[in-house]
């Protein structure tokens, strides 16, 4: 049926992305050594902070930074990571926003939303700002309904 969008939703935590709740999603391959990826990991009950990882580029395809589990691991472009009361804020040295996460907490669960713009290593737009939330561009994302079990680039040889 056309026009019907569907996916999974969790009782515990979801990301609000492209106008839908998703328990976790992945764009690109965290196992690649150099390529773009964005991993918004599936969280289990008991966990209370969203886990974001990714390798982000600017619109020219130059690498900006690599983030692993909310921590800035590589920062060749001298970007700024700043925690906020609701998540974190990533910006370029020029002050331009790269990605911001906002987590809203309810009595029995929480929802994380994004704002910002992300590009891949070819300078192709992968995450776009749409009003006050973000939308994935293209349809190469994978829904996660369990925590990510794969490896990250550097660990690949051990996998």
């Amino acid at each position: 049926m056309e026009g019907i969008r569907s996916g999974a939703v969790s009782a515990h935590h979801n990301y609000m992305i492209s106008g839908m709740l998703r328990p976790g999603f992945l764009v690109g391959d965290p196992g690649s050594a150099k390529g773009f990826y964005l991993l918004a990991d599936f969280l289990l009950p008991g966990e209370n902070t969203p886990r974001i990882s990714g390798r982000f580029f600017d619109e020219r395809g130059d690498m900006l930074l690599e983030l692993t589990w909310n921590r800035l691991m590589l920062d060749p472009a001298d970007c700024l990571y700043r925690p906020t009361p609701y998540g974190f804020h990533l910006s370029k040295s020029s002050g331009e926003i790269i990605l911001e996460t906002t987590t809203r907490r309810f009595p029995n669960g929480y929802i994380t939303s994004f704002s910002g713009r992300l590009y891949d290593e070819k300078g192709v737009l992968k995450l776009d700002q749409e009003g006050s939330s973000a939308r994935l561009v293209g349809n190469d994302s994978i829904m996660l309904t369990a925590p990510y079990q794969g490896c990250f680039g550097k660990e690949k040889k051990n996998a």
Partner: peptide, 14 residues
């Protein structure tokens, strides 16, 4: 009872 592990299908019909 409230089950935080529960997963369901979410559908946005037109």
């Amino acid at each position: 009872p409230h089950d935080p592990f529960a997963l369901a299908e979410l559908i946005h019909p037109p």
